[in-house]
Each structure stands twice: as structure tokens, then as C-alpha cells.
């Protein structure tokens, strides 16, 4: 069935915290590693030791600079399939190889029926489909479907490879259809957002925005304002301990404190 299921029992997906992601690429390489031998095998690479090394990756990490000057920031931005609720990548597929699971909402490509027409990659707004040139079929993030239900794994290991690897804990996996799930709560609390909402694909994956820069003094400025001294004026003699010098004041204080 290439028609999308009207409703899926679960909406499994990822929540990616852009405030925490340091751009380490662990999610990209662990994804590559798992999938190169799993459901998506082979995940081909080309000219790997040559001038133009490139290959199919199901997860890629971008870097952006946003804003200018003091307000500027650098944001690391991992990008993979968002397992959209109404994705065009499924409906355009002429073979039905591209499908969305009614069970959990995972969007998959059936490597046995895909003809490699690449139309789904044109239909995806997020660049999430990666054609495997050697295999001749389309590849994409499987949400590690062969891990998350894998009964040969310990229950706590039944998470996507990228989530398990991510050293900062910037990646979260769960049911975004269940408002009570941890991921849904996190999204609500941190005001998670959709990418390109105007495209109308209703991504399941959510991104958590970088937080407002915390200035530890903001809440406490009053407490510390008093403590912030006037500039030490340059006329004070360097090593003088005469009364009135900064050092003398300091030592007088030190003495007071220590004799308490």
C-alpha cells in the first residue's frame, strides 16, 4: 500500500536537542555503521579512498551560524528522515516500495520492490532520502526498525543506533503520538518545533531550539551587583601594603575574616 495510513497506532520518532548537540558526528557514523550491516545493507560508498569520496548516509550533521555579533551562535544540526505524517515521499512512489507503517508511523523503503526511480527523493523536502548507487534502491532512516523491536537485544538497547551512541544525550526516541510519553513532554516543555511546517508534511520528528543564553547573574544580579567593585585605579602602587591601598584593604579583610 503506497497510500498513507490514515492514522498510525504510534508515532515513533526522534527529538533532537539543538541546544545540546555539539556536532560530534556520532549519530551519523553510528547510523552508518548499524545500517551498513542491517536493514539498509549495503549502504554503499564510492571512491572511498579516492578524490571524490561519497556514499549513502541516513543521517548527516550540518553546521550553521545564526545571527550576528553578540547574539550570534553556532548551531549543529543533525538531519535525517522525520517520519512525516503526510509525506509526499510515500504517495509519489510508483511501486509501493515507499510506505508508512500503520503500526508505528515509520516510513520505510522496501528494498525488494524499489525500482530506484528516485521520485521519492524529489518529493522529500528534507533531503532525507539517499540513493544507494550500487544497490540501485533508495535508502533512508529506518528509525532502526531492526533494532527497536529486536528481541535479541536487551530491552534498554532497543533504541535507534544514533540515540544509543549520542554522547551528549541530544537525541531522544519515543512515541510522539502519546502526549504522556517522555518525548512528548520534552517537546511541550522545550517548545519543540517542526522543520518547514509550510510544506505540510507534518514531520513526526521534532527539534528543540537552542535555549536563551543563560546569564548566571540575571537572576542574581542584585545579589552580586554590590560585590562588583569599582575599577581598581592605576595610580595605586603595585606592591604597596600601605594603609588605603587595595592590598592593604584586602589584608585587613582577610584578617577580619580569619580572626572571626
Amino acid at each position: 500500500m503506497t497510500a498513507r495510513p490514515q492514522i498510525t497506532r504510534k508515532k515513533l520518532g526522534l527529538v533532537i536537542d539543538l541546544d545540546t548537540c555539539v556536532g560530534c558526528q556520532a549519530c551519523a557514523t553510528s547510523c552508518k555503521e548499524w545500517n551498513a550491516g542491517g536493514y539498509s545493507a549495503p549502504l554503499s560508498d564510492h571512491d572511498v579512498y579516492g578524490a571524490d569520496p561519497h556514499g549513502a548516509w541516513l543521517n548527516r550533521v550540518h553546521n550553521y551560524e545564526v545571527g550576528e555579533g553578540e547574539a550570534g551562535r553556532t548551531v549543529h544540526f543533525p538531519r535525517s528522515c522525520l517520519h512525516c505524517e503526510t509525506p509526499a515521499c510515500v504517495t509519489v512512489c510508483p511501486t509501493g516500495a515507499s510506505y508508512k507503517r500503520a503500526e508505528d508511523g515509520i516510513v520505510l523503503v522496501d528494498p525488494d520492490t524499489c525500482i530506484g526511480c528516485k521520485l521519492c527523493s524529489w518529493a522529500c523536502a528534507y533531503g532525507a532520502r539517499e540513493y544507494d548507487y550500487s544497490h540501485g534502491v533508495m535508502k533512508k532512516c529506518t528509525l532502526c526498525v531492526d533494532r527497536i523491536y529486536n528481541e535479541t537485544f536487551e530491552p534498554e538497547d532497543r533504541v535507534p543506533a544514533c540515540v544509543k551512541a549520542c554522547p551528549t544525550g541530544a537525541r531522544h526516541f519515543g512515541d510522539l503520538g502519546d502526549p504522556e510519553s517522555d518525548v512528548s513532554k520534552l517537546v511541550a516543555q522545550r517548545e519543540g518545533f517542526d522543520l518547514l511546517p509550510e510544506m505540510g508534511f507534518k514531520p513526526t520528528n521534532k527539534y528543540l531550539p537552542p535555549r536563551a543564553k543563560r546569564d548566571a547573574t540575571a537572576a542574581k544580579r542584585d545579589a552580586t551587583a554590590a560585590a562588583i567593585s569599582k575599577p581598581v585605579v592605576a595610580s595605586i602602587k603595585p606592591t604597596s601594603t600601605e594603609a588605603g591601598s587595595v592590598s592593604a584593604k584586602f589584608f585587613a579583610w582577610a584578617d577580619r575574616v580569619l580572626s572571626d
Binding site: T20, R73, T74, H76, T168, K213, A216
Partner: peptide
Amino acid sequence: KMALGKLKARGVKIVSINPVRTGYNAIADE
């Protein structure tokens, strides 16, 4: 990285002293 994730989760202020703003330094509060 695990530690920075923990600090983020607890809302601890991170100050980066670095000529370059990438990686760890990119997620610092200051």
C-alpha cells in the same frame, strides 16, 4: 560530551573561553 549534556539538562551555565565558537564552545551560554 556526556558531562556537557548533563550540565545542559540541569541548566548549568557554561562559559567558553575560546577564540573559536564551534563544537563544545558553540553550545556554551556565554
